[in-house]
Nucleic acid binder design. Structure first.
Length: 612
RNA sequence: GCCCCAGUAGCUCAAAGGACAGAGCAGCGGCCUUCUAAGCCGUCGGUUGCAGGUUCGAGUCCUGCCUGGGGCGCCA
């Protein structure tokens, strides 16, 4: 929000440098000035000093020369309009602006833009984000949560940064896991229907049961293989059952997405990609890009060989099994093509997929490039690290995890949550989260009506969960523990929501109408200055989060803003301010803070309650 | 063997190559008859894994190591 002032300052500096034959550094970067009850920005002059020393062969230490330049420039810049003071400190040129005028401007801007504050102009560019990608006929558990929460937040952030976002889902609706489930259902639960509630739990129980039966009775496996043959032959009765049971899964997922406040614009099915995928493989073989080793081996794309690379880089991409059945790899090619057929104008096609598949993603992208698709360089793998379960949960998991053959003794202390693990199902998680949050709401604010407490408890619980998963680098592990996932204090969503509630409370007490815009006349308190700085920083945080696909920048901005507000709240009377102008300005500042907090939380998919 | 990620306070994590590396949690000590104490203040805490290098300036970039995790032709 200081753009125009910074531009003026830079212009003046450039003129000075030119006049004194000092080469201009490649890039100027403003830094925040250490806050001392004033407001402004700093500019390190080391790059210019270093350039000058080098160009002129001076024998002066760079820091000393930087300080001299800063001092000279301070005089040049001090007289510019809007600037109240400029000084040289240890090689930095610190420029201070009129805090009253800027304080008003920031507050007015936030209030005028309201829900649009922090949002960039539309770019007229479309991006697709594929995320969630659950398997039907399986559980939806805490391990899947990070993907959904990250994907949704990235979508919201990209939208705020001006992109038109297409949210895509890709359902794993076929494969051995589905056949196993159908076998168990047909053999032991014929005709049964899932309960209206908890469809996903019921389905996942049948899946776990199928694994247990096969583990205990390996002699039953031929039955499953026989069923797979029926599937391959597209037995109409089996296909009908598959469609019906798949729909149960989808309805269960939709319920989860509704709870999480997530939606999709386009859903692709893995089963739809099988036939086009096999056709593509034949095409690859004809064009000499793939090598057919059947029946002894699979069909492969020897990427390093095709690219003439000596060092193993892309390695070999296996696109079809030796028996001619399809792999994930078979289906991901037509999926990518289908996306660009439907949306040819995508400037980015993003895959939110865990980091273990990085090599695989690179193989897909490179193969598509070799096939000649010009959009191949617009594909992007947004990698994130897995959710780990602590050792005590892992043991529970193992009791229901019949596919895991890893020896128990050399297992790491925490284990990645995977789709066949039954522990920490989402309904368990939500239930426990709600319970803990409700207990705290009851304790903190027993005066609220029970229905409101219920609603607040859910907002708090879900907020804490989402925030915890988003407030870290995407590429860092998230180790799930109840206490950490549902921490309500400190750097967590509830304390940010609480700051929002405090704002709402002040505004309610003030009568609900906001005073007209006003320029403050009192000496702005350092806490006020800091709070205004946090507000002004919001739009940049959004742009950066979008550019880097990192919701972390939003959580940092939100928590910093909440902290600054709490500090302000503690030190600066609002309703009881010393004079009417101060009261009016601070009320507007509170309203602006409330708006900015709500906007930031919204980008994270977290609700901002009015009371709690 | 090749590649990717991580290593920062007791713990969980921040930190556009910039000023004295910051928060939260845990610990200790304060602050509720005054706008909601899910808060605020103070205090305790550091050789940023190791060694070199680039730079005016390195937690950040480069090289080599160490430790942990992950990936590497028919799993998803």
């Amino acid at each position: 929000m200081l753009d125009d002032v910074q531009r003026q300052v830079l212009e003046r500096i450039r003129a000075y440098l030119t006049a004194h034959a000092i080469p201009e550094p490649r890039e100027w970067r403003f830094v925040p000035v250490p806050a001392e009850g004033t407001w402004g920005f700093g500019l390190p002059l080391f790059p210019a000093a270093a350039a000058e020393v080098r160009a002129k062969g001076l024998r002066v230490p760079v820091p000393q020369r930087a300080q001299e330049l800063a001092a000279a420039l301070a005089d040049e810049v001090a007289a510019l309009p809007g600037i109240v003071r400029a000084e040289a400190v240890r090689g930095y040129l610190n420029v201070y602006v009129d805090a009253h005028a800027y304080g008003r401007r920031v507050v007015d801007t936030v209030l005028e833009q309201a829900a649009a504050f922090g949002r960039a102009p539309r770019r007229g560019q479309r991006v697709m984000v594929e995320f969630s990608q659950p398997n039907t006929h399986k559980a939806f558990h805490v391990g899947h949560l990070r993907n959904v929460i990250l994907g949704e937040a990235v979508c919201r952030i990209l939208d705020a940064a001006g992109y038109d976002v297409v949210r895509a889902n890709y359902l794993g609706d076929i494969g051995w896991h589905v056949i196993k489930w159908l076998w168990n259902y047909l053999t032991y639960h014929p005709g049964e229907e899932p309960p209206a509630e908890d469809k996903t739990v019921w389905i996942s129980q049948l899946y776990i049961e199928a694994n247990q039966r096969l583990k205990a009775h390996p002699e039953l496996e031929p039955q499953v293989r026989a069923l797979f043959q029926r599937w391959e032959a597209q037995d109409p009765e089996l296909v009908a059952l598959w469609q019906k049971t798949r729909q149960w899964s989808i309805e269960g997922f939709e319920e989860i997405y509704r709870l999480l406040d997530v939606h999709f614009d386009r859903v692709y099915f893995e089963s739809e990609m099988e036939a086009p995928g096999k056709a593509l493989v034949e095409d690859l073989i004809r064009r000499g890009l793939a090598r057919d080793l059947r029946p002894e081996g699979p069909v492969i794309v020897p990427l390093d060989e095709l690219l003439g690379l000596d060092k193993p880089t892309y390695r070999t991409y296996v696109v079809l099994r030796s028996d001619g059945t399809s792999l994930y790899a078979t289906k991901d090619l037509p999926l990518a093509i289908q996306k660009f057929r439907e949306y040819p104008d995508l400037v980015r096609s993003i895959y939110v997929i865990d980091v273990r598949q990085s090599l695989y993603m690179k193989q897909i992208f490179k193969t598509l490039a070799l096939m000649g698709f010009e959009w191949a360089d617009r594909l992007y793998h947004l990698a994130y690290e897995l959710v780990l379960l602590p050792a005590n949960l892992v043991r529970e998991v193992d009791e229901v995890d019949m596919e895991d053959t890893a020896p128990a003794d050399d297992r790491p202390k925490a284990k990645a949550a995977s789709s066949r693990e039954g522990a920490v199902l989402l309904d368990q998680l939500f239930h426990e989260a709600r319970r803990r949050a409700r207990a705290i709401v009851d304790e903190k604010n027993p005066a609220l009506p029970p229905a409101v407490r219920d609603q607040v408890a859910w907002q708090v619980a879900l907020g804490a969960l989402k925030y915890n998963m988003l407030a870290r680098e995407n590429t860092r592990f998230f180790t799930f523990t109840w206490d950490q996932a549902l921490d309500f204090n400190g750097n967590a969503a509830p304390s940010i929501q609480y700051a929002h509630v405090r704002c709402a409370s002040l505004l309610r007490k003030a009568g609900g109408t906001l005073p007209d815009a006003v320029t403050p006349t009192h000496n702005l308190h350092p806490a006020e200055i800091a709070l205004i700085s946090r507000l002004a920083a919001v739009p940049d945080a959004v742009l950066r989060a979008a550019a880097e696909y990192k919701p972390l920048h939003i959580t940092n901005a939100a928590f910093g803003l909440a902290q600054a507000f709490n500090d302000f709240y503690d030190r600066c009377p609002v309703l009881n301010a010393a004079d009417a102008t101060t009261r009016a300005f601070r009320l507007r500042l509170v309203a602006a803070t409330k708006q900015a907090l709500a906007n930031l939380l919204h980008l994270l998919g977290i609700e901002a309650p009015e009371v709690m």
